[in-house]
Structure formats: C-alpha cells, structure tokens
Amino acid sequence: MAEAGGAWRLEAAAGFYRGRGEIARYARAELRFLRWEIDRGVLDERSGSPWWRAVNDRLLRDRAEAALVREDGGEPPSAGARAWAAFLAGPSPERWYRAHNSSVVAGYLENEDLAAAELPAERLMINVTLSRVLYAHAMVAVPRLALGPLAALGPRLGDPRTGSVGMFLDLRNVFPQHYPLDGWSTGRVMDLEGRRARMLDHGVIKPRLRELYAFSARALGEPGLVDLLNGDIPSYARPDIDRSRWHERRLLHGLATLVTAPGR
C-alpha cells in the first residue's frame, strides 16, 4: 500500500508549517512533491525505497530539531537544523531554500550507499531531482546564474509560496509513476520526458550544472556537492548515464541556451 510510511511523513511535514501564519504558505511546493513520492510508492515501509525514506527523514529530523530549539533555546545540532531555525526566525524564499536544500543535500551525501543499491533508472531520477532542487534555489538566490537575461523573473518563478515553482519541482508528468523501475533503462526514462521537461533539464539546467553545483556547495557549506558531477553529467551514485544520450537533441539545447544563457 503506497500510503504506508507516507501518511505519517506527510502529516509531520504539514504539521511543521500548520498554524505558523506566513510560514504556512511555504508548505505548498514541498507537500506537492511529497504526495508524488507517496503516489509512486517510494515511501512504503515494505516495498518502497530505503534511500527515498532516508532523505525524507533527514528533512523531517532537521526541522523537528529546529522547532524544538526555537521553543526551548539552545544551539541546533546540525547545519540543516540551524538553517531551519534561521528560516523560522525570519522567513523568506531564499532562507527556505537554504534550509530545505541543506537537509536534502545532507541526506544525499550521507546515504549514497543506499542510492547505489537502486536500479540505474532510479539513480537517474534521483540525480535529476537534485539538479532541479538546486536550480530552484538559484532562481531565487542568484537569478542571473539561473536565467541569464531573464533574471528578473527568477524570484517570482522560484518562490516556493506560488504555484509557478511547480513547473520546476513537479515530476509527476516527467518520470514513471511507479516503483521499482524493473525493466527500465536510463535511456528509456530519458525518452519519456516531454518536450518542456527536456527543454528544462537539457537546455536550461545542463549548460550551467557546474556553476549551479558550485554555487550550492558554497551556499550550503557542502563542498562535497561538486564531486557529484562528472564534467557536466550528474554522477551521484553512478547512474550509468550514456554520455552520448545526455548530449542528444543539440538543436533543442541550443534554442534554450540562447534564451537563457548562463550569467552572473
């Protein structure tokens, strides 16, 4: 049953935001993504993914620690918890991304062994998910890097309180909606992406991956993040991406890059 293991995580995530006034508006993007995970079944305790559960639990733990510290005083025990405490003290889109991504990246780095046990197609999805989350942060924090000449649109498009960020974080219509991905190759998963998703992942994000990971490593205090790229190919848990396939659709890449050339 897909709900097993997902229902309590959804309630815990929603509970952090509930009753906190303006902060409650920041729940939108995260809860939408969490429902996608539940629908796929990756959070199921018996048939789901130990990796997806571990990363989600790191996020829940950091937030719970930040909330306790805010109530009782003291120093948050982890960088993620400290970032969430800073968000609670002065909420803003940039602080939300810094807190959320601090927890998510820590979860990635400390659970790479679990990711390596996933099928190659799942590892590809895990890498694309990371690049999109980092990109959404950049739209708010360094919009020139994320959108080049369209930088003025970044803070609005990336604001987690609005529906527009869904086009970057919603994977419901991009990847297979079940787990595990038995019989799926990384190439087949890449072929499933629609035109808009390919434009985003290969045309907009891919040309700036190295700058994007370098920015996030600095912003989150996680220097190991830059090691999750092999050139301009995501390499977390060795997803076995075919380099020639990753660089396909050159015209599509070029059109998107012309519109949103990387910049600072």
Rank of each mutant, 00 (worst) to 15 (best):
R132E: 02
R208P: 01
L171Y: 12
P234I: 12
R218A: 13
G163H: 06
G224A: 09
P160F: 10
G166Q: 08
S216I: 11
D170L: 00
G154A: 07
A217C: 09
V133M: 02
R218Q: 09
V204G: 01
L220H: 07
G166E: 00
G154H: 04
V189C: 08
V189T: 12
L157E: 00
D159Q: 03
L225F: 11
A152L: 14
L134K: 01
R161W: 09
M199Q: 14
R210L: 04
R218K: 12
P223T: 03
R132S: 02
G194K: 12
R238Q: 15
D232Q: 15
V133K: 03
L200F: 12
V165S: 00
P176E: 03
L150S: 07
P120L: 01
Y135Q: 01
E193W: 15
T186Q: 09
V128W: 08
V189H: 04
G148F: 03
E211R: 14
A197Q: 14
A152K: 07
N173D: 11
F168G: 02
D240M: 12
D182G: 14
L229K: 11
L134W: 08
V204W: 13
K206R: 15
D227Y: 12
T162R: 15
R188F: 02
A138F: 02
V140F: 13
G224E: 14
A117I: 02
R208L: 09
M125Q: 08
L171F: 14
R123D: 09
E118T: 10
R172H: 10
I205F: 11
I205R: 14
L130G: 00
L130Q: 03
G148A: 07
A121H: 03
E118F: 01
V204A: 13
G148H: 05
G203M: 13
N127D: 08
A138N: 05
G203Y: 13
G166K: 07
F168Y: 07
V174C: 09
I233R: 06
G231S: 11
H178Q: 09
P149W: 15
V165G: 00
I241P: 00
Y213T: 03
G221Y: 14
H178N: 12
W246L: 11
T186Y: 04
A116N: 04
V142P: 00
R161L: 05
D170W: 07
L124T: 01
Y179H: 10
